[in-house]
Amino acid sequence: MHPLHNADKPRCTWPGSDALMLRYHDDEWGVPLHDDRKWFEFLLLDAFQAGLSWKTVLHKREAFRKVFHGFDPRRVARMSDRELAAALENPAIIRNRLKVQSAVRNARAFLSVQAERGSFDDFIWDFTEGRVIRNHWARADQVPAATPLSDRVSKALKAKGFSFVGTTICYAFLQAAGVVNDHLTHCFRHSEINAIKPGRP
């Protein structure tokens, strides 16, 4: 884990001074992902982020983990009406009925993609032929909210039955999961992530 107290490390601006955001930025965001359980976690959390800040969602992540069975898509796909009703009464998460219902719908769609393609990971990385998109943004205002890549991913996910997967949400989880390296060029993680050997395990 990178030392969060080290003020000498230049970072992206979006984590601010929040310790949890800094830890997420330093340890997770932008690292190329090849784990289906983690893919489902990012899909679920980014769907709940729609219209809200990532900081809000991140501070509720452990509560989401408990409610949604450790982000196990098989268990989420089988959640009962009683469990969903309890989730909507749980103040520790974001209590939005459409988003809670979409978690179950997306879990079922996720399992369908796994059955069809072998893994969700293979499905997503095929959009870039297994390559990381290495951007070189100098300023935060240069980083796009969506791209033609996220447009294609959004369209494909919607066609497979996913909801809350608009192009902006899709770009957010492509950034989070390292399909795109959008750390700013002055950020110490930009070069570290670019040094990670590309490709699937």
Score class of each variant (00 low, 15 high):
K66D: 10
E89A: 15
F162W: 07
C12A: 12
G51I: 10
A115Q: 15
T13W: 09
H190P: 03
R95I: 11
A140C: 02
H59A: 13
L157K: 06
V113C: 02
S154H: 01
R134C: 09
R105C: 11
Q175M: 13
P148D: 08
C12L: 09
H186W: 10
P3E: 14
F123K: 05
D141Q: 12
V100L: 11
F48G: 05
V76F: 07
A177Y: 03
S53Y: 03
K160Y: 04
L44C: 14
F120V: 10
H190G: 06
V153N: 00
S53M: 10
A87W: 00
F123R: 03
L174D: 03
G51S: 11
P148I: 08
A87F: 02
H25T: 01
W14Y: 03
N6R: 15
A146E: 15
Q142N: 09
A109L: 06
V113K: 02
A195R: 13
R37G: 02
I94N: 04
D72Y: 05
G130H: 07
H136F: 10
P15H: 09
G51P: 07
L84V: 11
A63R: 12
L184E: 08
E192R: 14
D151H: 08
N106T: 09
A172V: 07
M1F: 10
W137R: 02
S102V: 03
A159G: 14
L58W: 01
A138I: 04
L157S: 03
S163R: 14
K9P: 02
A109K: 08
W39M: 13
L84S: 06
M1Y: 04
V100C: 09
A145V: 14
A138H: 12
V180R: 00
H183S: 05
